[in-house]
Design a protein around this nucleic acid. Sequence first.
DNA 1: GCTTGACTTAGAGTTAACTCTAAAGATTAA
DNA 2: TTAATCTTTAGAGTTAACTCTAAGTCAAGC
Lengths: 142, 142
Amino acid sequence: MSYSIGEAAKMVGLTAHTLRFYDKEGLLPFVKKTSSGLRAFTESDIEWLKIIECLKGTGLPLKQIKQYIDWCMEGDSTIPQRLNMFIEQKKHVEEQKAKWEKHLAKINFKIKYYEDAAKHGDLNVFDRHPELLKEKNKLFED
Amino acid sequence: MSYSIGEAAKMVGLTAHTLRFYDKEGLLPFVKKTSSGLRAFTESDIEWLKIIECLKGTGLPLKQIKQYIDWCMEGDSTIPQRLNMFIEQKKHVEEQKAKWEKHLAKINFKIKYYEDAAKHGDLNVFDRHPELLKEKNKLFED
DNA sequence: GCTTGACTTAGAGTTAACTCTAAAGATTAA
DNA sequence: TTAATCTTTAGAGTTAACTCTAAGTCAAGC
């Protein structure tokens, strides 16, 4: 059993347009067509789409995702490259997580700041809570 | 004391081109110019740039960052909107963090998979470790 | 005073990732 | 069998966020 492009799109949360675009970009060399020319997505193809989504979701550009797909199509000789790519991507994700953590601390500070401002209707927050100034400087110092 | 556009750019890890672009887009209404027309960034302006970087770094589009800046320029009456924006952005960051956590689990699985593949020089990983199949299906089930 | 490098503007060009259109062919349900 | 709803292609258009160019102005060091 297989799925039409519309069904496949719905299953992975993309549009049929986007899947065709990916195909055109060479990201879906594994997708076969019926005798009348319609794309037929298998369960295995859906798995591929999920891996693509995972890599895209962690910020890997489509070009590099294509590189990975190409390695997969090339065979066992590219296993080291693929392993390396995932190790690099793991590193990238962990760096991003750290960055987001820092940004979140700043956002939390701003929420605290504006909550006080909203309570009093003005921005004299540091007059009311001088200790917050040190906290702010620490958060934004780099 | 104030900084030239090049100095300011270096301080926040952007280019002078990008700062001019931000200015053109209305993100830097607070930056004043010298009598001869050169932008002069104050310490306070650098703080603004860091907040912009924080919001941009958590995925807020420049248009919405401009909206925030506009609110700031408008005065105390927009404090509730600004508070609300940061609360929304906090929510967004936390959703993203959860998403990245899921992607990371998939990437870690792939690393495990390709490490075994690399060790044996082939992709018969699930023949050697049938229990990994269940793990894979759990990770990619949604 | 002169050179060198940074700065100014307006505006054009780039890149990634879609997003949509048109015209034609395929599939499904009544 | 016919209408409605897919799907196909090629190719144009869009959006966000830069990125660069040209032609001229300004500032700092010798």
